[in-house]
Structure formats: structure tokens, C-alpha cells
Computed example of a mutant assay.
Amino acid sequence: MQEESHFLIVGLGLLGGSYAQGLKRKGFHVSALDLNPESIAYALKQGWIDEGAVGFDEALVRQADSVVFGLYPQALLEWIDQYQDSFAPGTRITDVTGVKERIVAQVQGKLRPDVEFIASHPMAGREVSGVQYADCSIFEPANFIITPTSANTPEGIAWVKALAETLNFRHIATLSPAEHDKMVGFLSQLTHVIAVTLMNTSDNTHLVDYTGDSFRDLTRIAKINESLWTELFLMNKANLVREIDEFAAELAHFRSVLENEDTEEMKRLFRQSTQRRKCFDK
């Protein structure tokens, strides 16, 4: 990736702001668009962007050769519909959205042939939103997933890989959009469903004075952006429903083991979970 590249960040939230911060620290020219004037003002004050505009600015779009979309899935699709004529020929674009199969198919299906969309997913985030929480150090322990298709060029794939390397992601992997959505249905979406469901099982707020770290750790991600995650769940419904069913079956099995006081099977499950969890230690 050339240092004279002009980046445009569309959507200065937590991730968009973190991209801007990280790219600016590496010496790149960074512009931004956001619907919130306070987000633009904040990024300018922090020195994370060279210029920005509220809503849409054709000049900023045309000067960019590299574009990162930090938008919700549906907003990304609508932006492409409305404004893709403003891209300069040869522009490469990527995203941060947490579902891929439907997004990639729709964007690549409608995008101009002289603009390339190489989808990617930074597996990083926090339980807060907004550019004021941006911090590019969240990328350092994180995985970065590239989800190319036959519509992508080797040069485009190399560009998004270089972007991840520039931002210091710990590990970079490549999956098809379908493989990505199956993976994320289990690793991310199901875990959010479990945390949300646990917090909604009963009114447990009176237990705050007695809880230990295990409850806080397990329910950390229950503090959730309802608009974003509703879109993500619905766009990956088939995968997530299957994962919920498989989890429910495993939960029913554990209930049976407990009810029947099957100590040997319970210990086997504990040993298996302990061994599998070790693979995820960083």
C-alpha cells in the first residue's frame, strides 16, 4: 500500500474512528464523512483526519483511492446505491460489517466495474459506540478476516491485506463469505444471544451487590447496540438459528446429565470444555 494513498472513512464510529487514527499515525492522508457533525469535529480535533464533511461531499469521495465503510450493513447498501457514481475510477473499497454473504453479493452485483469491493471484517470492538471511544490499539490482539470472491483481483486482495498489516492486526485470514457467516454465527452471534438471553432470564439487577467475575465476564457483551445487531442477526438468520438449535440441544443434554446425577458424563464434559478452551488462550 503506497504512502501517498488517500483514504476516505465513511462512518466515524468506534471502528471507523479507529481506522482513521491508525492510518493517520502511519502517515496516510485521511478524510471522513459522517452524519454527525460532532464526530467530524472530534476527529479533526484529535488529528485523526485531515478533513471531513457532514453527510456527503463529492470532492472528498473523488480524491480518495481507498475507501473504508464503517457503516451498518443496510446503510452501506444504500450509500452505494446513492453515491457510487462519485468514486474515482480504480478506487478500492472495503468494509467492517459483521455479515458477508448478502452484503458482498449485493455490493458487487451493483458496483461499477471500475471500482473494486474487497470485503473484510476486523474481529475487534468494544461494548461502546462512537468515535470518542476509538482506539487503534484494539486491533493489535485481533484477527482480521478477508472474504474475497471470484470478482476480486489479486491486487485488490493484496491491498486489503496490506491495510490489515498497516493497522497491526495480530492475524490475517481468508474465508469465503459463506464460510465467514457460518463461523461468525457461532463465534460471535451465538455468544451474544447467550449473553442477552442470560440477562433477560429474570430481573437479576438486584444481584449486583453479590456477583463475581464469572457473571460479569459472561455477560459483558449483553450491553449491545440493538439496531446494529438486529440487522446482523437477520442477515445471518439461517446460520444463527442452526447454532441456537445446536446450543439448545447441548444445554438439554447437560440438564439431563445433572438431573440423572451422571457424574462421569458431567466430568467428561468439564474435561472436554477445558481442553477446547485452551485453544483460544492468547
Rank of each mutant, 00 (worst) to 15 (best):
T149I: 11
I118G: 02
L44A: 00
F233I: 05
T147I: 05
Y19C: 03
S273F: 14
P37Q: 06
D114R: 08
L23N: 05
C136S: 15
E226V: 15
L15P: 00
V67P: 01
V184Y: 10
P73V: 09
G11D: 06
S176P: 09
H253C: 14
L111K: 01
F56S: 10
F139W: 11
N168C: 14
A88C: 13
A64T: 00
V131N: 05
F215C: 02
I103W: 00
V208Q: 15
A105Q: 14
L44I: 03
R255H: 11
S188K: 02
L198N: 06
S256C: 06
Y133F: 08
D114L: 04
L12G: 01
V54L: 05
H180P: 01
R242L: 06
K26C: 13
E3R: 11
Q84H: 06
R102V: 15
F247K: 04
D95Y: 04
F7W: 09
A20G: 05
E116I: 03
V96K: 00
N225T: 04
L218F: 13
E78W: 06
Y42C: 07
W48P: 01
P177R: 00
S66A: 15
R92F: 14
A162D: 15
L251M: 15
E179C: 02
G22M: 02
E127W: 12
A142D: 03
S137H: 13
S227F: 12
H206F: 13
F270M: 15
P89T: 04
T97V: 14
D34W: 01
D262H: 12
A43P: 09
V99I: 15
G16A: 08
Y42M: 12
H121P: 06
T166H: 00
L167S: 03
C136I: 09
A119I: 04
R62Q: 14
G185Y: 01
P177Y: 05
H6S: 08
D245S: 03
T153K: 06
E231W: 02
F215H: 02
Q272P: 08
